[in-house]
Design a protein around this nucleic acid. Structure first.
Lengths: 124, 124
DNA sequence: TACCTGTTATATATTCAGTATAACAAGTAT
DNA sequence: ATACTTGTTATACTGAATATATAACAGGTA
């Protein structure tokens, strides 16, 4: 597994875990239909509690990134609600871009950064 | 004041307050040199504790959005460290755009949303 | 002097994060 | 059938973060 938890971060462990799995999907390190480790195995591997992993998995399920199957365990399965995704993205971007604008980052510069990051995904 | 706190939100009050002040600066509702209400007045107005407002102000000071002056109180004063701002923005964008990419939002669609939000600022 | 600023210090209640055990239902492998 | 795996649920505990409540202090203003 590729997960790397920063225990000194102010971000909760289960949020870091969720973000890294989403990033793994975006970069094709994790693909539709692929299995994630069981909550117990991943917890063991990272060195954290089972429930912390379960919290991340449950959140990812709720957000439409995976399906939890009694037979196969946690399986990557994207459920796309594009309108809702756009609405959420807009709200999150509003804060980030407001900060950027205050710090003299131009719209063009923001576009460049967006392109940079998207290229990380598309050449996955 | 324009602040509107959602007490049912999962976002901390002082974070909501900070975000709205940054948004207010970006949209020119608050301008360089302008005074914010005193921590006691704003707390009274919103109906929250003085320390919660103080926490938001202290954070905004730390992040370079205002100066705290014993004479004038809290004054909008942007301290620009563009390189750092870009670095932080990049990290935050990475998570948001990974989510977007998983939900089939294209790079072009992301650009449109960025343009939309920037236009909220520039016509302030 | 009286009043206003931000600031600091305590104390308290509540919620959240993370851990620790334990058990359960359902499926798989032997 | 037995043993083992899966996610899931329940309970209990610790520690940290959030928010509140009083109180006081230093520096500046009217």
């Amino acid at each position: 597994m590729f997960v790397q938890i920063d225990f000194n971060s102010d971000e909760a462990i289960y949020i870091q875990l969720r973000n890294q799995i989403i990033y793994g999907i975006a970069t094709s390190q994790l693909q539709e239909g692929e299995n994630l480790p069981s909550v117990r195995d991943l917890a063991e591997h990272i060195g954290i509690n089972m429930h912390t992993v379960n919290k991340a998995y449950t959140m990812l399920k709720q957000e439409g990134y995976l399906r939890l199957d009694r037979r196969k365990g946690a399986v990557i399965a994207i459920d796309i609600n594009k309108l809702q995704a756009i609405r959420e993205m807009r709200e999150e971007l509003r804060v980030i871009l407001a900060k950027a604008f205050c710090k003299n980052i131009s719209c063009e510069e923001a576009h460049e950064i967006v392109n940079d990051i998207f290229s990380e995904f598309e050449r996955g």
